[in-house]
Amino acid sequence: MKTLTRTDKIAYIFLILVFGFGIYFANTNLQFFDEVYTKEDGFAEYGTAVLLFLSSMLLFIRFFKLQSSKKILWKIGILGMGIIFLFGAGEEISWGQRIFEVESSEYFIENNAQGETNLHNMVVDGKKINKLIFSQLLTLILVIYLIITPFLYRKYDAIKNLADSFAVPIVKWHHTIAFLLSTGLLVFMGSNRKWELYELAFGVIFLLIFLNPLNSKIYSK
């Protein structure tokens, strides 16, 4: 496709391979899928953290390079997104707790489903925050951002101007298609560990969006 850059093609080939092997292992060797392919602190989890971190750094670099020529709303938007993705990267690896072998405080041991220092596994009144906020709310946001917003951006100047003012990158249709395909392929993997691959797809696709959005002019002086 002419709309795909070389980076897009490499990223999508990577995702095809990751999900292809994932479907194969999930249906032929579930133990390998759970304990090796998608294991805690495995390539999928660390890969997601790295991709989210790269997205945040890209946003911060653009902020520092362009902030002198941009308005306050643009600065708020790009800094806010950078902080969100940096937070996501930290949460993905529990802020390096397992890497540096840091013990959790008593509060997190008692109130975190995995006894780790992170927010997405916290339990409040017997309910995991991850299920309520990081799953249900995030799903709603992704549907609005990846499917509804692109239509509105193309149709209404008010939405277009608002998104551009806050430096919100608008997805191209191949980004949306990639996300929908990644979502659909999950049904072929009968393991809860499949969500590690979904998060990896999230990291890949959002980095592609930030690199080359439909409204790439928001990153020019």
Rank of each mutant, 00 (worst) to 15 (best):
4 L>C: 06
4 L>H: 08
5 T>Q: 12
12 Y>N: 01
14 F>C: 10
21 F>H: 03
23 I>P: 00
25 F>Q: 09
29 N>Y: 08
32 F>K: 11
34 D>Q: 07
35 E>P: 10
36 V>F: 13
36 V>I: 15
42 G>S: 02
45 E>H: 12
46 Y>R: 01
47 G>P: 00
49 A>V: 10
51 L>W: 00
52 L>I: 11
53 F>V: 04
53 F>R: 05
54 L>S: 13
55 S>N: 08
56 S>N: 09
56 S>Y: 06
58 L>T: 06
59 L>G: 02
60 F>N: 09
61 I>R: 14
62 R>W: 07
63 F>Q: 08
64 F>A: 08
67 Q>C: 14
68 S>H: 01
68 S>R: 03
70 K>N: 02
72 I>F: 14
73 L>T: 11
76 I>T: 15
79 L>V: 15
79 L>G: 15
80 G>S: 14
89 A>Q: 07
90 G>D: 06
97 Q>A: 04
98 R>I: 00
100 F>T: 09
104 S>Q: 13
104 S>G: 12
106 E>G: 12
108 F>Y: 15
113 A>N: 13
119 L>W: 07
125 D>A: 14
128 K>Y: 06
129 I>L: 12
132 L>D: 05
132 L>K: 02
133 I>M: 13
133 I>W: 14
136 Q>S: 09
139 T>H: 12
139 T>G: 02
141 I>R: 05
156 Y>D: 07
156 Y>V: 03
156 Y>M: 06
157 D>K: 00
162 L>E: 01
163 A>G: 02
164 D>L: 03
168 V>K: 00
168 V>E: 00
174 H>T: 02
176 T>R: 03
178 A>L: 02
179 F>A: 05
181 L>M: 10
185 L>C: 02
189 M>P: 00
190 G>Y: 08
193 R>L: 04
195 W>F: 14
198 Y>S: 07
199 E>D: 09
202 F>S: 03
203 G>P: 00
207 L>F: 08
217 K>C: 01
218 I>S: 02
221 K>Q: 11
221 K>V: 07
